[in-house]
Design a binder for these strands. Sequence first.
DNA 1: CTTGTAATTAAACAAATGTTTAATTAAGGC
DNA 2: GCCTTAATTAAACATTTGTTTAATTACAAG
Lengths: 247, 247
Amino acid sequence: MATRTAKNKNRTALRRRPGRPRGEAHSEAIRAALLKAARQLFAQRDFKAAPVREIAAAARVNPAMIHYHFGDKDGLYRAMLQETMGPVLQKVQELMNHSSGRPAGSIHDALEAVMTMLAREPWVARLIVREVLAEEGPFRELFIREFAARGGGRVPQLLEREMAQGRVRKDLDPVLGALSFISMALFPFIALPVAEKLFGVRLTDAFTRRLVEHSTRLFYEGVGSNVSHNTARRNPVAAAGRGRRTT
Amino acid sequence: MATRTAKNKNRTALRRRPGRPRGEAHSEAIRAALLKAARQLFAQRDFKAAPVREIAAAARVNPAMIHYHFGDKDGLYRAMLQETMGPVLQKVQELMNHSSGRPAGSIHDALEAVMTMLAREPWVARLIVREVLAEEGPFRELFIREFAARGGGRVPQLLEREMAQGRVRKDLDPVLGALSFISMALFPFIALPVAEKLFGVRLTDAFTRRLVEHSTRLFYEGVGSNVSHNTARRNPVAAAGRGRRTT
DNA sequence: CTTGTAATTAAACAAATGTTTAATTAAGGC
DNA sequence: GCCTTAATTAAACATTTGTTTAATTACAAG
């Protein structure tokens, strides 16, 4: 495949010549375009499998601009992580901190915050897979320290608060509980491409809502039938009990 | 770092010369060594980040042997997948099929089968991350068809069986339930490197057992306290209720 | 108007990587 | 004992990749 399209009628004048462009604020635009292209490519491909030439092509700039703006490929990657993951995680933290206060509010709100975020920004889950789960490289540690600790690291305390307030049974191991909680919150989005092919699910707003309700109820009550285990009927969390196969 | 150790006193005679080696059955050994080295490296690094030279070095053979035995790097990868994932998944399938039959037996047994396997063969989780979750390449589809479908694809039916036998509540959505189940079964192992740094857990046999019990109980009963929701006390699954912070 | 600096490009460079080749040695049948 | 084939190596090859360089243009200050 040729790099340039057919419309480019081989006049040399069309080819952009070197030199500073006219007008101002070009530099910032290029920086932003590079960050955007990097985010998209790094969410889709591994760090080593995303060549700088391709990132630059997606941003419609010269590869050398990466080194002009970010020093090297690592610098671009680091800047991309900061500028994209930062705001997202901050928002999740906010939402998790002041929960609504109603019964099971914290858990429900935390699940809703995390899940709606993962549903709205599909690249986050992909980035977590590559960055935190797959790659053994030097970035994993930075990522855990900077991001994962602020997110999942606080779940045991959240559970202990719930236990102190009597909404969670006292013999729960908060760490195991946190592990299960994080599993239920993250994995469906991490494994979404598989779930689509395997179960035919599609990531719509409705699906996300159903998943939030389902997971909240499962986390509190489990799936056991109220016959063999006399599990909660008429509970404050999952009030939608009219249809069948809802949660 | 030099390729050869200091002990190698630059005599040329020590360097292995080309030509067929004496004795027989060398070829098979080399093939096996390459498969083993490939499995270890591909579990740790991305496909593109695992150079053939390094795989060959780990197997102590010449890089050209990869092409002699497997055609190319893809061929080695494919052969490795078949020869390593095949037996493991077959075993899990067996264990999942004839469950013990006692109350909640299926769920408990399935969790135990999957989790002990993942704990004993740490490379499986890493391979799943790269192969099924991370990589968008041509291998993902093959992997889903060949392996994931035989494993996770059957969970909804398992849940429906449980529902028919009255051990699981009737209004559960089997697909959502399967998603949560698979999440709880796989994610702790997939995210193990993170969980270690975040929560200080270590993957011992004892931990795996605790996780199996915890997850089974959580899946059936949830974590809700029997005060606010009157959740099952005295249930058949999690009978170990003497200490505190156990499940 | 000159001069220095910022922004941008094409091209060159060096290292790494998948693959191929030619040479070399051993085995096995005739 | 010769000759074909199997197994193995070192070295060469071609491509891709991250990075650097030198040239080129615009702008801003003096």
